[in-house]
Computed example of a mutant assay.
Amino acid sequence: MTQFVWFLVYTAVVFCRDFGTENVDKRILLNDPDLFNTQIQAIQRELETVKSQLATQVNINNAQQAEIDYLKRVTDNQHTTQGSTYTIWGKTHCPPKNGTGTVYSGIAGGGYYDKPGNGANTLCLPHNPDPAPSDFPTHFQHNDRAASSFIYGAEYQYTYKNIAVDDDVPCAICSVAHASSVIMIPAKMTCPTGWSKEYAGVLTAPAQWSGHRIGEYLCVDQNAEYLGEGTRQQNYDGTLFYPVQAACGSLPCPPFTSSQLIACVVCSK
């Protein structure tokens, strides 16, 4: 019992010293319970403070970890959803290369070559079209005349490798999982440093002849294909793909040359 009492006395002295109580009389009397209780209460308060600080730090750590997990999910999601799309003209499917897939194979189409109006851009129409809403009107009147817009198929107006004049033009919509940007560069067959080549070919557009409507410059694959054995070289016109040539003047020659056929390349990054 005496040893235990002296142990308590020694402990109280140590705690008094550790908490900056050097100026307090270290001679603790055993018959002074108030002083002893005061020191014990001070220790208990200090322990409660430490516990509170630890709990606060745990909450902060948990919040920081939750934010780290959230940012990681966002980064992973951005990585998995990264990608871009482009249209390849003259092919039924997209290039067989890593990271590039065919969304759908289609039919090139647009406005009639010599008609005003309609859309100026060329579209890649799917092989399995869905009808418009059944209650949508089928006749439109403007100034007492029937008015409407039409879309036609497309035909090549040149012969090269596997295709001939009046062959119908296929197309495909391609997805590029490894890239966020896709560009078409005219007058080039190779891509800039750091870019990957999707395909290369010849630049086409509607003819410059009088009566032909304005259209787009489109890059047709150098190994173009045609649609349907049964419709080869049947002249239905529609949207027409003519090769583009250089015209010297405001276009400097050199580096271009007069009547030079213009190449093109589609690049991704």
Rank of each mutant, 00 (worst) to 15 (best):
T2H: 03
T2V: 08
Q3F: 11
F4S: 13
W6Y: 10
F7I: 10
F7T: 12
L8Y: 08
L8D: 01
V9F: 06
V9R: 13
Y10N: 07
A12V: 14
V13S: 01
V14F: 01
F15I: 03
C16S: 01
R17Y: 13
D18C: 05
T21N: 11
E22M: 10
K26P: 13
D32N: 10
P33E: 01
D34L: 01
L35E: 05
I40D: 05
A42L: 13
Q44C: 07
R45G: 13
L47C: 04
E48F: 05
T49S: 04
K51S: 08
S52F: 10
Q57V: 14
Q57F: 07
N59W: 04
N59R: 15
I60W: 03
I60N: 01
N61P: 00
N62L: 12
Q64A: 15
D69P: 03
L71Q: 15
L71F: 05
K72F: 02
V74I: 09
T75H: 10
D76P: 01
N77F: 09
H79N: 15
T80E: 07
G83M: 01
S84H: 03
K97S: 10
N98R: 15
N98A: 15
V103G: 05
A108V: 14
A108T: 04
G110I: 11
Y113W: 15
K115Y: 06
P116E: 12
G119S: 15
A120K: 07
N121Q: 14
N121D: 11
D130R: 14
P131T: 14
P131Q: 13
P133D: 14
S134W: 03
D135E: 15
T138D: 09
Q141A: 03
Q141W: 12
D144G: 12
R145P: 00
S148D: 02
Y158N: 08
N162V: 07
I163S: 02
A164D: 14
D166Q: 14
D166L: 13
D166P: 00
D167K: 11
D168Q: 11
A172I: 10
S175P: 00
S175M: 08
V176N: 11
H178Q: 14
S180A: 06
V182C: 02
V182E: 07
I183S: 06
P186E: 02
A187K: 07
K188Y: 12
T193Q: 13
T193R: 14
G194Q: 10
W195K: 12
S196K: 03
K197V: 11
E198W: 01
V202M: 10
L203E: 00
S210L: 05
S210Q: 04
G211S: 05
H212N: 08
R213V: 15
I214H: 05
I214W: 08
C219Q: 07
D221N: 14
D221W: 06
A224V: 09
E225N: 09
R232I: 06
R232G: 09
R232Q: 14
Q234W: 02
D237K: 04
D237S: 10
T239R: 06
Y242Q: 03
P243K: 12
A247D: 11
S250H: 04
P252R: 08
P252H: 03
C253I: 08
P254M: 04
P254A: 06
F256L: 15
S258R: 02
S258W: 00
S259C: 11
Q260G: 11
L261N: 06
A263W: 12
V265C: 00
V266P: 00
S268A: 15
S268G: 13
